[in-house]
């Protein structure tokens, strides 16, 4: 059984404690969200899980066959065109160039890019298009585990829904497991099986929320309803320092 297991994770930058005693398990086919205010150590946690930072204390065990990472910014290579950017992960895996190009073109079309965009460099793309390309690059490798670092936060509402719909389709087919980081509660409720609330200074988990309804059955009414409920929660109010009047 593939899973990601985090046990007793602590992390420091210099003398500043960033994360304290984080433990959780992400099973295959599950979507786990970590929500919390900005600057609360969420990205650090994700970097540790994705092996982009060295673990200092505690353990991260990742038995997923493959993983990929979608960043908050697009992080495209400015000297490569759209298709070559998408193909990057495939080539790194050892796919043949022609196969990689073909797969990349296929997914690019699925993600709403036009054939005339294929040869363009990132400088000629709009912000939303860049994010599509970045998302396609992360998903074209068919990862069994996907790390998402607020990839929707800079997008307009239409594009956000579009990309989420693609993700939800993959989730409901149990093709993918997701570790998702966000400060947007509604987004988390729409996508996750489980939400961990990360409180800042230092980052530690204060509460867990479970959502059992399958993602493709969750309509706007469900998401709004659950969001309203969660916003009444004392821990949420405290963590996000919401002043409800």
């Amino acid at each position: 059984m593939e899973k990601l297991e985090v046990k007793g994770l602590h992390h420091h930058f210099g003398f500043t404690e960033i994360l304290r005693d984080i433990s959780f398990t992400l099973d295959k086919g599950e979507v786990l969200s970590i929500v919390g205010p900005s600057g609360g150590g969420k990205t650090t946690l994700l970097h540790l899980c994705a092996d982009l930072l060295d673990v200092e204390e505690g353990s991260v065990t990742n038995s997923f066959a493959s993983s990929s990472y979608a960043f908050q910014e697009d992080r495209l290579l400015p000297w490569k065109n759209v298709i070559d950017n998408i193909a990057l992960g495939l080539l790194a895996k050892g796919d043949k160039k022609s196969v990689a190009i073909e797969k990349s073109q296929e997914i690019a079309l699925k993600f709403g890019l036009e054939e005339e965009d294929f040869e363009k460099f990132p400088k000629d793309l709009s912000g939303g298009m860049k994010q599509r390309v970045s998302f396609a690059r992360a998903l074209v490798v068919k990862p069994s585990l996907l790390f998402l670092d607020e990839p929707f936060s800079a997008l307009d509402i239409g594009l956000k829904k579009e990309l989420q719909a693609i993700l939800i389709e993959m989730i409901s087919k149990k093709e993918i497991s997701v570790l998702f980081i966000t400060h947007d509660l509604m987004e988390a409720i729409r996508l996750s099986d489980e939400i961990l609330l990360l409180k800042a200074d230092p980052g530690h988990i204060v509460k867990k929320f479970q959502y059992d309804l399958p993602q493709d059955k969750r309509d706007d009414k469900y998401v709004y309803g659950e969001s309203a409920k969660i916003l009444q929660d004392d821990e949420i109010i405290d963590t996000f320092e919401l002043e409800l009047r």
Binding site: A50, L52, S68, F71, R75, G89, K93
Partner: peptide, 10 residues
Amino acid sequence: DLKEMADSFG
């Protein structure tokens, strides 16, 4: 950032 991206794709 690009280095990190390169690492994440191995």
